[in-house]
Structure formats: structure tokens, C-alpha cells
Amino acid sequence: MKLKSYFLLVVLVCIFFVTKGQNIKSLEAVSKQDANPENQAIIYGSFVQRLGFSSGGFAQDIRIMNVETKEIFSFRVKPIFKSAKENAFCFYIKPGSYKILNYWWTESKWYGGKMFTEYIFKGIESSKVADKLKKGEIQVNNLEQYSFRVTDSSVHYLGTWHFDKELVSFSNNKEQLDITIQTEYQKINWVQAKPEIPE
């Protein structure tokens, strides 16, 4: 029975992505042996997830869009098999302007997991967007997405992403993260990284 449930879950996930019709590219993780980037950029920060231990072994992702090229990218903010409430992230990215699209996460259930895709907008809880639009309390034109900009051959600190609540927020804790991240990635100059907190 568990195998059947798992197979059904896999099929549903595949159908979801195919019907979306979007080519989502995964950002490449920075290796612990890598040095400061040339002709590309690095983004890093810390992510506070919605769930703690109840997230099970499921991964969680953020999807962003390059404003100029309209390409959609995904990057992992909670690794598989980790239940820590807060995790650091560090990825290569093309230079450009980006908007945060959504937060993709799975809640552990007895039958496997329940997936959620939350579209992120400024000043509004993700679960209330559809209802407020339906009631006419907000208009599509008034919805604003968080954005950030990345320049070539540079390292950008994107802040601490507080996604533990539906009304998300971002804070600057660069000094604290730099202390821990430099022990793992010793060849990158974190001190000179440019803060670029989404706004």
C-alpha cells in the first residue's frame, strides 16, 4: 500500500511540472573548494523554514525569475534529510535582476507528504492572496514581488530569509553568517560580499 501511495505521489508531481509548461533550471551549488567567482556571481544567505522536525526528510526550494531573460531558476533552501529550522544556502547565479516567485515545500504526512507552492508577495500572507483577489480587496496590479540584483564576478549576501511565517521578511545578519560559512568555504572572501537584501 505504501508503494502504491508513493508511486501516485511521484506521478502527481510529474503531471504538475509538465502542465506548468515552464522550464525551471536549478542553480549550481558552490563547492567548498571553489574560490571567488570570475564571469559569474555567487549568492548566499540563510533560510528559516516553515516547518521544523515535521518537515521530515523532504527538501524545500525557492523559485526566482530573471527579470531581463524571463528564465526561472530554483535553488534548495532546505536539504533532503535535514530538519534544522535554519539552513545556509550558497549558489552560482547569472548576473541580473531577480524577483522571488514562490516557496515550494512538503509537509510530512502518514501517506508520504503534502506539497505546497506558496506565491510570495510583499505585505500579504501567501494563503490569503487568492481569497483577497476574489473578494476584490486587492488587485493583481497592486501585488508586488520581492526583488534583488546581482552583478558579475561578485559575491552577494541575500540576508536571512524568514519564511517560518506566511508573511515573509528578510533581515541582515551578515556578520554572524560569515563567521560560520567561512569555516566551510575558506577560499571565498565573505567579508567583501555585497549585502543585497530582497526588497
Rank of each mutant, 00 (worst) to 15 (best):
I100C: 03
K70P: 04
Q49P: 02
E118Q: 07
G96R: 05
E86N: 10
S108H: 08
F91Y: 15
F121I: 01
S127G: 02
R63W: 03
G52E: 12
F89V: 08
F47M: 08
F58C: 07
G113H: 00
K99L: 05
F53N: 08
P95G: 01
I80N: 12
T117V: 08
K132S: 10
G52A: 09
W161A: 12
K135T: 11
V155P: 02
W161D: 12
Q139Y: 09
T69S: 14
N142G: 12
V155T: 14
N66P: 03
G112Q: 03
E144P: 06
Y119S: 02
K109G: 02
L101V: 05
Q145P: 04
F73S: 03
H156W: 13
Y157C: 09
P79S: 14
W105D: 04
P79L: 09
G159T: 13
Y111Q: 05
W104K: 07
S126W: 01
W105S: 05
F75V: 03
N87Q: 13
P79G: 14
G136Q: 11
G57S: 11
I64G: 00
K70N: 14
V150D: 05
N102C: 09
G45N: 06
F91H: 13
F75D: 00
F116N: 11
S126F: 01
F73P: 01
Y119R: 02
G57K: 07
P95S: 05
S74M: 11
T151P: 04
I124A: 05
S83A: 09
T69C: 02
K78M: 13
I120P: 00
G159W: 12
H156Y: 13
